[in-house]
Design a binder for these strands. Structure first.
Lengths: 139, 139
DNA sequence: TATATTAATGCAACTTAGTTGCGTTTGTCA
DNA sequence: TGACAAACGCAACTAAGTTGCATTAATATA
C-alpha cells in the first residue's frame, strides 16, 4: 500500500504544498479498497468534518492525475471514480451493491493489442476491462 | 446487417406500434458503423427534419433495450451510446476524433471468467473491454 | 370508416456530475 | 515577516439524463 505522507513529501520536494484537502484525500484513497467518485469523496470527508468545495476536489484530482498519482476508473454508471495509481489491474463490479473488487488477469492482452494495432493501424494507449455481475453477498 | 423494417415487423407482431421515431431511430442505428449517443441521435435526426423530444428518445431507447434490440455501450466520456444488438464484440476508440471501430477478439475471456467466478464467488453477467488510442488518421 | 384503447409523445421542471471565472486565502521560502 | 504563487471557495453555468403529467396518434375491431 502507498502512504499519503510519502506522496506528499515527494510533492513538496517538487515545489507543491501540503494542504489539508490534499492530505486527507490521499489518506482516504490509500485506505480505500475501491475507487471513489467525487460525490463519494465529499461524503466521506464531510463525515470527518472536512468540507472542501467540489471545485477544489475536482481540481485537486486533476492535479494528482497529472502527477500520475491518481488514475481515473470508469465503470457502469456515469460517475468517474479515482484510485491511487498502482499496477495495471481490472475490476469485478457488483451490479447490486456497487462493490468493486480489484483483480489481476492471468491472461495477457499484449498479443491481442499487437494484432489489433497492426490490423487497424491503431496506436493503442490503454485498455479498460471490467467484469460486471453479482458478488458473494448479492447472489 | 439488421434492417429496421424487419425489427419493426417483429415488434408489431408483439402488439407494439410503428412510429416515425421508432422507425427512423432504428434506421439510423442500423446504418451507423458506430454506437451513437442521444445527443448525437438528436443531431442526426434533426438534419433529416425529425425533431423528437429527448424524453421520447430516452424512452424509446429504454424500450428497445428491454426488447433486446439495442445495447448500451460505455466508453471514455460520460455519454451512454447505443447500438443494434449484435454478436458480442469490442471497440477501438480514438482519443482524438472519437471514431469507434468494432473489433472481434481472437483471444477468449471465458476461461478467465470461470477462474474469477470461482476464485471470488462472483457471478459474472458480462464484461466490457475497450481499447483506447489513436486511429489511422489521427496518429 | 368511425371509434375506443393505450402506446407513444411532448413539455416543463428537475437532478446530478462536472466546469469556468474570478476574487480570496494560505503554505512556503527567502 | 512579507511576497508570491499554489490552493481554495463561491456562484453561476453546462450537459446528460429523469420524472410527472397532460396530449396525440397508431391500430384493432366494430
Amino acid at each position: 500500500m502507498v502512504h499519503a505522507p510519502e506522496i506528499i513529501e515527494n510533492l513538496k520536494r517538487r515545489g507543491f504544498r501540503e494542504t489539508p484537502v490534499r492530505f486527507r484525500l490521499l489518506e482516504l484513497l490509500s485506505n480505500s479498497s475501491t475507487p471513489l467518485s467525487v460525490p463519494e469523496i465529499i461524503g466521506k470527508l464531510s463525515q470527518q468534518n472536512l468540507k472542501p468545495n467540489k471545485t477544489t476536489l475536482y481540481r485537486e484530482i486533476d492535479f494528482l492525475m497529472n502527477q500520475d498519482i491518481l488514475v481515473e476508473v470508469r465503470l457502469h454508471d456515469r460517475k468517474k471514480r479515482y484510485e491511487i495509481t498502482q499496477q495495471h489491474h481490472h475490476h469485478l463490479v457488483c451490479l447490486k451493491c456497487d462493490s468493486i473488487t480489484d483483480i489481476k488477469l492471468k491472461q495477457d492482452l499484449g498479443r491481442e493489442e499487437t494484432r489489433l494495432a497492426k490490423r487497424f493501424n491503431f496506436a493503442i494507449e490503454r485498455h479498460a476491462l471490467e467484469f460486471f455481475g453479482y458478488c458473494n453477498n448479492c447472489q
